[in-house]
Nucleic acid binder design. Structure first.
Lengths: 161, 161
DNA sequence: CCATTCGGTTGCTTTACGCAACCAAATCAA
DNA sequence: TTGATTTGGTTGCGTAAAGCAACCGAATGG
């Protein structure tokens, strides 16, 4: 039956996964962040099959994370560029990298380091903090239905409260 | 041929995806963050097939994101609980949710809102900032090989610089 | 003008997902 | 204490998707 789709789930995580959750998608985006733009470059760097790459790029274009720009003088030579929506994924990629730096590689074994170009210092880690700068953990949070929630979702949170 | 595996890729994103990249995995973790612990609850809430849920839970246990705790008085009644490594995924889930709030639902249409339990105010958005609090964008960053990088990776960054 | 690169498509095989049926052990109700 | 139900799965099957290889037209480079 193929895969379940998540778009009807009324949950931001599920929505994001609908756009990004396929196997190669986020790695394509990562490479786009490194400045990669061409089909052949993604193919060579990732070792992804052409048909799958083609499908993923289309998917990302459909979701307006990449845009396909014709750069040939007579047409038919393309670049895939990050849109603003795509660039907005930087915090997602960053938290994933920071998590694996800490919990998979361990301190001192990071494969890449991201620095501020201006100050040449490492970019401070992304952490949940309140307005006063206190670190927040899972227990400190309360999740409530937002304005865009379905009635069903409101009921779920009501039950829990 | 089934799926390519990413663990040999010497990249934090790929490593994180190896642990979390499967279709249901991150939604299971999200539900774990909501306090969910039991097999049947995950099954009912997500509508996931039992065999797939079983496989994903094992995978998460293998990666030490969840731990399987026997809570039956005579054994054989289990709970799946977030480990510290699992709880450390909070920023990842948060940035995903914030991205979809902004770029999929749009302001004012968020399905859920996360508040600080103490102050009852919304948790400030996670953003990349330098030490002085300036927002950082893609162009402000430089990525360099870290101490755990393979020679190959060093070469890649050298070529680019 | 010829060779090569780019950006794919098509066809085939293998793997993984979704569904349904089934099951043993533990727990619950009477 | 016995019988029913819940829990946490496993097994088998059909379908959808990933991987591989071959091929291809248009654009580009020499």
């Amino acid at each position: 039956m193929g895969r379940t789709r998540f778009h009807e789930m009324n949950c931001g995580i599920a929505q994001a996964l609908e756009a990004l959750g396929d196997w190669w998608t986020l790695l394509i985006v990562r490479n786009a962040f490194f400045g990669m733009r061409r089909f052949a470059d993604f193919e060579a760097d990732l070792g992804i099959a052409k048909n799958v790459l083609s499908s993923r790029l289309q998917h990302l274009v459909n979701h307006q994370i990449l845009e396909k720009v014709n750069v040939g003088r007579q047409g038919a030579r393309y670049e895939y560029r990050l849109t603003d929506k795509g660039e907005a994924l930087l915090p997602v990629l960053t938290t994933l990298r920071e998590w694996s730096d800490e919990w998979i590689y361990g301190k001192g074994n990071e494969p890449v380091i991201v620095k501020d170009r201006r100050t040449r210092r490492r970019v401070p880690k992304l952490q949940l903090k309140d307005a006063d700068g206190r670190k927040l953990h899972r227990r400190d949070l309360r999740t409530v239905a937002g304005p865009g929630a379905l009635a069903e979702t409101h009921a779920r949170f009501a039950r829990r409260s």
